[in-house]
Design a protein around this nucleic acid. Sequence first.
RNA 1: GGUCUCUUGGCCGAGUGGCUAGGCAGUGGUCUGCAAAACCAUCUACGGCGGUUCGAAUCCGCCAGAGACCUCCA
Length: 485
Amino acid sequence: MKQNLNIYNSLTGKKEEFTPLNDGFVGLYVCGPTVYSNVHLGNCRTFISFDVVYRYLKYIGYKVRYVRNITDVGHLVDDADEGEDKIAKKARLEQLEPMEIVQAYTIDFHNVLQKFNNIPPNIEPTATGHIIEQIEMVKAIIEKGFGYESNGSVYFDVEKYNESHPYGELSGRKIEDLLSNTRDLDGQSEKRAPLDFALWKNASDEHLMKWPSPWGIGFPGWHLECSAMSTKYLGKQFDIHGGGMDLKFPHHECEIAQGTSANGTSPVKYWMHGNMLTLNGKKMSKSTGNSILPEELFSGDNDFMEKAFDPMVVRFFMMQAHYRSNLDFTSDALLAAEKGFNKLMEALSTLEKLKATKDSSTDVTALVNEFHNAMNDDFNAPTLVANLFEAVKFINSVNDNTATISKDDLALLTKEMNGFIVDVLGISLQISSSDDKLAPVMDLVLDLRQEARTNKDWTTSDKIRDGLAAAGIVVKDSKEGTSWK
RNA sequence: GGUCUCUUGGCCGAGUGGCUAGGCAGUGGUCUGCAAAACCAUCUACGGCGGUUCGAAUCCGCCAGAGACCUCCA
């Protein structure tokens, strides 16, 4: 487990050696989706990035409690006082119960992530299931003097908090700058100051999702659920909190303020933020039509990609970029990734067939150590992939008898190649097309073709090959015989 | 307007003060009846202008361009 893992901490802007609060255990919280529409590809990238973080922590021996919430109370669309709840709005438009909306999109979310081979979190709490905890947290914040009630709503007093704590420390903002940039649209605002944010909102009669509270009927503020649920399941302070870049401000900043004022301690030791994803160089946006859903990518039913892509290819493609970098989705890039992916998979099956000899012609231990070094350096999956391809080259060389591998090294390499590809990167191996009924048919067909080839009947053999190709089956001739795929 | 980040070869994308990232494409080769596939080898680089340094693509400054956040957003 002693791996000298380094994590880039958004709070300090530096890579820091990871030391868990409790030796051997890691608390990991990731901000989940608001389930009011289909999960989009950008969301998936964040969750896949943190899936790899979770997987690697486990791989190096930590016991991890991974918590990722489902936001099933819609955040408000507009400014606090004018806004509309996204889920409530959608429910009204579609004439459904809000919980029908939530249920439908939660299922979609789980389905998509499963296709991407994400491991489900250990706890997936919902905001509506933790209203009591949220109310208790609001009470605590008021008690500590950082929250105030106004007309049935409760707000967080940012300026008061800033007197004793640096509000803006995560996003590098200063309260003066924020103030000078605040848009003037209040008027009848219940807030004392424009930077204050809602902890609890008074609900109007038409509002669909609401609960009783000490301040009247209402619903929790947008930032509160994460604070309440992370505290409940991971404690007042925990190790890693992740999420997309776009949540840094104000969401995570508010979480720090809420946690610090309610619990007396900064809630998170290591903040991690994944970067955004673009489509053809531009931000994904539903309004401009520059957007693609995972299902559309898998089915090929979209205007952006030349063909359909397997979820594992998409995942592999994402692994070729660092989680803190932007990643641009283009047809060409996916196509290139698909070929690389196939090469890697091919090598993995070649590895199983390798024959060990007395010595290894290369330092396999060093090769494998590089896998760890890559991931220990702030989960650098792209460097890991590069290192895996170094191993691929070696595997192929052994297969071509231009390199050798010892029995022990072969065992080590097999274990670690599979470990890093399957367990860490989360690339599930393709179930080879061993269709029970097709396989014997193919054996027969290829046998006939081989007969034709032996008889130098090229017309027949090529006809079989072309016919199969038309059916999407690629025939591969090699020294060992003919295979198909 | 404010805060911050980024700018790498035909494409995607790591990384680093002096030593090959990697993948895809291209080129050459091995294999093959011919192909395909596979494998091997190999070319093209660090936005512009200054500065620091023995040496910078890597550090600093300026300029240009892109993006994120400032308002719900992974």
